[in-house]
Amino acid sequence: MTDQRETRPPVLPNEQKPMGAPVVNAPGLPLMESVGEVRTVLRNTALPLMAANAATEVSGEHLMEKAGTMSETPPSHNSGPQRASEATMPTRSDGYLRLEVRFENGKLSVIGAKTVPGALINPTALIQGKAYEVLIADQPISVGSLPDVGVRRAFSNRDVPDPEGKHRFVQVPTFEFFVRVPIAHVTAENLPKMNIILHEVRETPDRLVPTLAVQKQPGIEAMEVVRLSGIQLESISQDVRLQLEAIIDENKNAH
């Protein structure tokens, strides 16, 4: 188990002594009166005393409705969905951009884009296999596993003998996958610095360090398969370009 002491003050007194003397926490405060001699009542004279016999009738505004004879009322059994309060719309900065990336002839290219509302959570672990990473310059932005990407797999029929008794794998030379980027990072300045990396991960830790790039994760063994260095708007299709330009404009206006 990890050391939990980081949250504690750096300098603390010594250990407990089973029969030690009382520890004086606050020398400026008095001691409580001794057992058998407790008589003094300490008063805050700015406040009133409670009445000996509280009043029974109350009137005024913003009161609950009269109670009535409650014990004869049977319990309620409401059902159906609870009623939502005013929907909290995700803020623009909560959304993310899902980029569709194609791997073809050993290269990556962006072929699609979609904005998705709501926060993006990065996974805390990766599969052994293919994974993507998005960096802006060297700063890690997002990461994700790509299980069985580039594979076409016929289900097995284990009721029959070989060969149908196992999967039939076909490696697909060209394949697509999604990478996800928080929308706040999609700016005109960042796109040329945005690197999309496809990794082949051979060994992976149980838990990633969120601030570290994949190759710098302790305990990881990963090989960079291919990298798209910078997203150049002029080199992507018009549909996607227009969409990215719209996001960039909105981000600019938001700032």
Partner: peptide, 11 residues
């Protein structure tokens, strides 16, 4: 279920 048997208002 539950049912209120007594309510005290203020006091």
């Amino acid at each position: 279920g539950l049912a209120l048997v007594r309510r005290y208002d203020a006091n």
